[in-house]
């Protein structure tokens, strides 16, 4: 069975370690906040200027002055801090943020990522994604393995305008956990329960390396 978005988020949450400062992008990455292991201390950064992002407010307690980078109403936590946008990207550029989790439209086998533009169709902009991928030391991409048309999003080379080059090292999809190898190619590390290596190979347009025995993803 392929994983749901929530299960992808749960699997990614297992990569978060005690003491991490983490930036979560929009979409599946946002869900990761719900599954951070208990008993560890993690601080979420929102690049509009907040460290220590808390849960959504209780109904009736929304504060229009307190939002995350997805423009959602949120809360602060004890120990939160607020700062301007230049300082926010200062801490990103200077690698004070330990882990960045973001979505993608395409990832190539050499670690390039495209997630901000479809020429002639969608021109929303890159937001903070280009800054994050250019500077983060540890980036995990959370995405569907294939697009709505059934085409692989793990490619030999990206076809869409790039967000960053040679920056992605790990990808988690509904089918698999994969590393991007330094010499190029996707290395299959884990597969969703009941999903065969062959199915993953079919859904992966880029070079895929898999050992004979690939363990299943464990989320609980």
């Amino acid at each position: 069975m392929a994983f749901s978005k929530e299960e992808i988020a749960k699997r990614i949450a297992k990569e978060i370690k005690d003491g991490y400062y983490v930036n979560l992008g929009i979409g599946i990455p946002t869900l990761v906040a719900n599954y951070i292991p208990t008993g560890i201390n993690v601080v979420l950064q929102s690049e509009n200027g907040l460290l220590g992002m808390g849960p959504f407010p209780f109904e009736g307690e929304e504060d229009p002055d307190l939002i995350n980078a997805g423009k959602q109403t949120i809360t602060t936590l004890p120990g939160s801090s607020i700062f301007d946008s230049a300082m926010s990207f200062g801490m990103i550029r200077a690698q004070k943020i330990d882990l960045t989790i973001l979505g993608a439209m395409e990832v190539s086998e050499n670690g390039d990522i495209a997630n901000w533009k479809i020429p002639g169709k969608m021109v929303k902009g890159m937001g903070g994604a280009m800054d994050l991928v250019a500077s983060a030391k540890n980036i995990i991409v959370a995405m569907q393995h294939v697009n709505k048309a059934g085409e692989s999003k793990l490619l030999p080379a990206c076809t869409l305008p790039l967000t960053g080059v040679k920056c992605i090292k790990k990808i988690v999809t509904e089918l698999a956990v994969l590393d991007v190898l330094p010499e190029g190619g996707f290395k299959l590390l884990e597969r969703a329960p009941g999903v065969s290596v062959e199915e993953i190979r079919k859904a992966t347009a880029g070079k895929l390396y898999a050992d004979d025995d690939v363990p299943e993803m464990v989320i609980d």
Binding site: E47, D84, S85, A86, S88, F89, I92, R93, W116, K117, V123, G125, M126, G127, G128, A129, M130, D131, A134, S135
Partner: peptide
């Protein structure tokens, strides 16, 4: 359309009296 950190830092540079910055974004 420019990266958000670049946007912020180009503002910052102007405010700090610096003509330009270097960024990897």
């Amino acid at each position: 359309l420019i990266p958000q950190g670049t946007l912020a830092t180009r503002c910052m540079a102007a405010g700090y009296g610096m003509p330009a910055i270097f960024t990897p974004a």
